[in-house]
Structures are given as structure tokens and as C-alpha cells.
Design a protein around this nucleic acid. Structure first.
Lengths: 206, 206
DNA sequence: AGATAACAGAACCGTACCGTACGGTACTAG
DNA sequence: CTAGTACCGTACGGTACGGTTCTGTTATCT
């Protein structure tokens, strides 16, 4: 596994942000090297000097964005059952907002498109740095909740998987396919609360 | 909405099948008009005569495949709670198998790629004829189960959404991104049973 | 048998885009 | 003042592909 610990200069990250903006509105077809150079106010030659080739630039975009994932607020040491509920709802709400956001949609579409061309590296990056990271943090929260006696399960990872499914349902795939949320789904906070309610019912201790 | 009731000749459906096979192994980049013509043993000119342009051909591939969706076995008139459980598990298992299959992955990737280029029509088709259809059938089953007193919920559609999320979790997105299932996820039957168990616990009447 | 339509095969055209090369410019160091 | 560095802007080569056109062949109909 290539540990791309490469740190980019301020100038280069600005280029990556410009490229991401270009990707978000316009899709992948708008993301040509010429367009990136123009939007970023640099020359194509510099792009190739900095990022190797087009795929390298795409990978840099993904890793840069994935490095921005906000880890869920660390749970307080001693916390009540209501704290747990609120933390889970906040997690679910945040997850829904991220997934329905333009940036997430554009990046996931890009990664899937690359996977379709036989290169799963972008997808792996996205899963590892995005979903994997946020999942690990939340799994810790679940374990603490179990230790506090608020939840009961065999595997924290499996429980997290269930929570994830309850929250997202088929929403992520639908937005990726270009579908728009139904009116009753517009209220993401409400969706998050319903999902967490179901989750707590499934894993209540008694 | 264009009601593409166009019926293709046997020859043309054979071309669509060949194109689908090409898409399944090789991804979208392998799906050039020249390659399709070669694989199907026809000329490019015929392709354009039959399907208009490349996008028309892609749409024809999707609609043809979507027309093959097997509606879940109609539930028996008088059925027991065990029948319900078995029907739900069969549904979940079948769903997982379809979603993890090469054809589903290739078509969903194709539709997402098209959506990324600003054309959501393929995605709409996929949702309407694929997920929408199977969902409607299953929702009917859920309603009958409620009438029989085996389940309790406010909205059958919402309950179906929950079942869908419990079954798929993040599996579909992961396979689309090129990730492979973890060893403990290989047993799809087991996943289906766990999901249905959770579902029934959530919506048990008492 | 002759006419007509359908089709395969191949050549061709225009376009889009990746990657590279080159000339010109601003800035810094000695 | 000169040399070096980093960069922009542009132009170009090579290639891939969508779509069109042409020619020859096969099949069907009268």
C-alpha cells in the first residue's frame, strides 16, 4: 500500500481545491487538464510536474478531501443515556448531510467511474479515509455505550454496520444515480432520529 | 416520461446481450461502438440505424436488463408467520445476490457514470424498473403481513425502506467502489437472515 | 431471373483530450 | 549584469472514439 504521505504546498492545495470545485459542478467530463489549469490559474506543465499525470491528480483530490473528514466529537468520559442518543443522532445527521452533499456525490461518482475503468484505488482511498475512519470512531462510541450498559451486542462492528444501514437506507445510491430525495425525506434530522430510534430498540440491553 | 415501449427484434436483443456481456467484463471503457459491433457480429451502421446513437444503445441495454427483474414469488393467500419469515429471507437473499452480481454492478456503474455527465435518465430507469418494481411487490407482502397480524407499522413504504437498509447496509456502495466483501460477509444467506431477524424485531406487533 | 432492401465490412472525418515541448516572463542570488 | 529557477500561456503530436459514408454481398420479394 502506497502511504501517500506527500504534503503539498499551499499553491498546490489551492489547485486541488479549484479542481474539486470544477468536478462538483460539471461532473467528470468537465475535469480536463486544460480546464483545471485554466480554473486554477496555472499551466498544464505545472500540473504534470506536481502530480505526475491525470490519475495522480485525481488521487490527490480524493486524498486531500478525505483528509478533511471531521472525526465525530469524542464522547465525554461519563455520559448519560441521553448523551448517547444525542451523539448517535448527531452522527447520523452529519452522515446524511455529508452523503447528500455535492462534494461527496461528485467524489463517489468519480471513484466509481474509475473503478469501472479497472482502477479501484480511488475507491479504496475513499472507503479507508472516509467511511472507515468515521466508522472506527463511532465503533468506539458504541463500545463505550455498551460498557456503560446502554447497549448490548456481540460485535460492535456489526452493530455499526446495522446503524449505517438504518441511517442511509438506499439514499446514497439514489443520489449517486441522480435521483432527488422525496419530500418526506428532505428533513434529514428527522431521518436521523428515526434511524437512531430503531437502532436503540434493536440493541437495548434488557 | 418517454414510454419506451419499443420492442426490439430477436437480432437486436442479441446485440444488446452481447453489449451487456462486453460491459460486464471490461467496464465502460470497453464499450465502444466498434467493439460492440465486432462482438455482436454486426456493423456500426446497423447499430446507429437501430438505436440512434450511443446513448440510445446504452438506454436500450438498461431497459432490456431491467425487464428481466424477477418479481418476488407472490405470497400465498393464507400464510403463517413462518411463511412470512421465509419469504422475507428469500427476498433479502435474492436482493443481495443480485446486487453483488456482475451485471448489477456494471449497470449501476454505467448509470452513475452517465449521471455524472449530466444525464440521469439511465439512473431513473434503473431505479424505476429495478428497485422500484421489486420494492412495490415487497411492500404488498408487508401489507398482507400486517393484515395477518404478523407485523405492525404506520407506513409500509417506510418499513420497506428500513428492511432495504438492514439488508444492504453499505454493501452495494462498497462493491460499486471496487471493494470486495469481507470473509464474514461471503455468506449472503446468513446476512439475509440476520437482516430479517432485525426487521421482525423492529416491527413485531406486541 | 431481376429488382429491391438489408446488412457487413472498411475506410474515413471531425472532435476531444492527454501529455509534452517551447518561448516568454517574473523573481532571486551571486 | 548574469545565471538560474519557477512558472505561465500556447501550440502541437498522438491517439481514441463517435458518427457517417461507400462498396460489395446476401436475402427476400415479385
Amino acid at each position: 500500500m502506497s502511504e501517500t504521505a506527500t504534503q503539498y504546498t499551499e499553491r498546490q492545495t489551492a489547485v486541488l481545491d479549484a479542481a474539486l470545485a470544477l468536478l462538483v459542478d460539471g461532473g467528470e467530463k468537465a475535469l480536463t487538464t486544460a480546464a483545471i489549469a485554466k480554473a486554477a490559474g496555472c499551466s498544464k506543465e505545472s500540473l504534470y510536474k506536481w502530480f505526475g499525470d491525470r490519475d495522480g491528480l485525481l488521487a490527490a483530490i480524493v486524498t486531500r478531501q478525505a483528509s478533511k473528514v471531521r472525526t465525530p466529537t469524542a464522547p465525554a468520559r461519563g455520559f448519560t443515556e441521553e448523551d448517547l442518543h444525542n451523539a448517535l443522532v448527531a452522527f447520523a445527521h452529519n452522515l446524511l448531510q455529508v452523503i447528500c452533499g455535492d462534494v461527496s456525490i461528485a467524489l463517489n461518482r468519480l471513484a466509481i467511474s474509475q473503478a469501472s475503468k479497472g482502477d479501484p484505488s480511488l475507491g479504496k482511498q475513499l472507503l479507508r479515509r472516509g467511511r472507515g475512519h468515521i466508522g472506527a470512531q463511532t465503533t468506539i462510541l458504541l463500545r463505550q455505550a455498551e460498557a456503560a450498559g446502554f447497549l448490548k451486542f456481540d460485535s460492535a462492528e456489526a452493530a455499526y454496520q446495522v446503524l449505517y444501514g438504518l441511517v442511509l437506507q438506499d439514499i446514497q445510491l439514489r443520489v449517486l444515480l441522480g435521483d432527488s430525495l422525496r419530500p418526506e425525506e428532505q428533513n434529514l434530522k428527522q431521518l436521523a432520529e428515526a434511524a437512531v430510534r430503531h437502532f436503540q430498540k434493536l440493541y437495548q440491553p434488557n
